[in-house]
Amino acid sequence: MLTKFEETWKQFLESIEDNLNNFISLKYVGILLRHLAEKGQRKISRSLPRGCSERSPNLVVCKNENIWSQTLSLYLCDKSQPLPFHDEILTCSEDTSIEQVDIFLRRALFNSCGKIHTVINVDKMSLTLCEGIEQLLIKYQRDVHSDYRLVFICGSDSENRSALISSLDKYRGTVFLMEQIELCTCLLHKFQNTSQSDTISPAASVDFEK
Rank of each mutant, 00 (worst) to 15 (best):
L20F: 14
N22V: 11
I24G: 00
L26N: 13
Y28H: 15
Y28C: 06
V29E: 08
V29L: 12
G30E: 11
G30I: 15
L32T: 05
L33A: 02
L33M: 04
H35A: 05
E38F: 04
G40L: 08
Q41W: 04
I44C: 03
S45T: 08
S45C: 10
S47L: 02
S47H: 03
S47V: 04
G51A: 06
R55C: 08
R55L: 05
P57L: 06
P57V: 06
N58H: 12
L59E: 01
L59A: 04
L59N: 05
V60L: 12
V61D: 02
C62P: 00
N64G: 15
N64H: 15
N64A: 14
N64M: 14
E65G: 00
W68K: 15
W68I: 12
W68V: 12
W68Y: 12
S69M: 09
L72E: 02
L76Y: 02
C77M: 03
D78T: 01
D78I: 05
K79T: 13
S80Q: 10
P82D: 07
P82R: 14
L83N: 09
L83H: 06
D87A: 01
E88Q: 15
S97R: 15
I98L: 13
I98S: 10
Q100G: 04
I103F: 13
I103H: 12
L105P: 07
R107N: 14
R107P: 01
A108M: 07
S112G: 06
C113H: 08
K115T: 07
V119A: 07
N121V: 02
D123M: 04
M125I: 10
L129N: 06
E131W: 03
E131V: 08
L136T: 01
K139P: 00
Y140N: 03
Q141N: 03
R142I: 02
H145A: 04
F152K: 10
I153K: 10
I153V: 12
C154R: 09
S158F: 14
N160Y: 09
S162G: 09
